[in-house]
Amino acid sequence: MIDVPTALALLQYGDSAYPAGGFAFSWGIEGLIADGLLDGRQDLDDFVWEQLSSRWNSMDRPLMARAYRAGDITALAAVDRTIEGATPSRPMREGSRRAGRALLGVSARNGGALSLSYRAVLADDTCGGHLPVAQAVVYRDAGLELPSAELVSGWTMVNGLVSAAVRLGSVGHLEAQRCLETARSGLAELLAEPVAADAEPWSFTPLIDIAVSRVRCRATRLFTT
């Protein structure tokens, strides 16, 4: 059972207003809409579930857990390299690094000890700073236990996808709340099953991967990914 201080921390870190630049990333939602593959609430529900079940739960979550358990900076950097090498799409890699470094930057400026140390290492490492590693570092600095860190990681992803769809006019504000309710139960279902510490990361989000990779084909866009 989550205690009140933890619940309040989750509300703070899971808030879309948390100043880590999450609003700049649509993680494929913008591309799917532009390519006619996302139109309305049912599509959004489906893509949010696909991203949750076939990427976040199978890749981001186990790698964030691995980074959370890392004993030192070298082990953290190894997780970063694993993520870099498990992501064929360059725009996806770049988006993950930008989002991760932004999150790490906020925590470091607020005095997070581990965030400060890892951020210093990243000054000389152009391939590191992926979002799951940054989340592990920042949530450890925030004093969150791993289950809470997983919860806020999953929820910020859901919130980012739905929020992007609202800003792109694919769903209205009330529909977005229904999407969030659906995603909430999906996320709860996934979190109820722990992920093995040695789980090999995988993903199968082909349309999302393609939509993100086609980002340079688009003349105008609102989001980084």
């Binding site: 489906d46 893509f47 076939s54 390299r81 498990a86 993903s203």
Partner: peptide
């Protein structure tokens, strides 16, 4: 020694909806 890429899928179906 280090792989450039490890691209892995591990699925039980094709998901739902558009995919």
């Amino acid at each position: 020694d280090a792989p450039l890429l490890v691209d892995r899928v591990d699925i039980r179906g094709l998901g739902r909806g558009r995919t």
